[in-house]
Amino acid sequence: MQWGWRFPSALQTIQTFCDGIANGQLLQATLSSLRRIIIAFVLSCAIGITLGVLFARSRLLDETFGFAVVALQTVPSIAWLPFAIIWFGLNDFAVLFITTIGATWTMTIASRSGIKNIPPIYLKSAQMFGTGRGIRLFYQVMIPAAIPQLITGMRMAWAFAWRALVSGELIARGVGLGQMLEEGRSIGDTSLMLCIVLVIAILGTISDYFVFKRVEDRIWNQYGLNTAKT
């Protein structure tokens, strides 16, 4: 039994990384993965916020379908892949679908609670100042009041989307990091596999720490919520 090739050395991994960058494959895979996650993320935010607002505003809806959303959130999104494959085939759509599904429920729950937790006094005084009960109240008071929770929800949604994306790409066809990982396995190139895992980790950290956490901190500061949060 030869074990050596199963555990790539640091040097090998760096070598593979440089090669991947040089021949453009790694970069291309990264870009198309990023493109997918951004599309799915935007979709899931739009759907999640819309659903969340509906649940927060309509008691009937909340009592009938609210529980379903909690249940759906517990389903790992990869479980939807077989459906996606039957509906869309083994392609981009299937991956986008499960990535979107993976992030939507979290976003729905976060925006529902964000809207529900708005202090009633904000809404009362808004009406006193003449916003009415419609769209002006919605985008001038309800959305900004819910922003801290929405941002926290987005941060979680992004993490869920990232997970769903990689697992989807492992199975479905198309250019992407997950697919490259799968290629590495099929040709037994563990250094490529490790290299991809590292890229995934680095991208995840950068997006979470330098984008979402920054924005979250800034918003929480502006809202004066940081006294409660260290």
Binding site: Y122, K124, P144, Y223
Partner: peptide
């Protein structure tokens, strides 16, 4: 029968909007 800008309330806990 509805709140209006001719009668403004100053609340005990100010109710200012933290995002503004």
């Amino acid at each position: 029968n509805a709140p209006g800008p001719d009668r403004i309330v100053v609340f005990q806990d100010h109710a200012l909007y933290p995002w503004l």
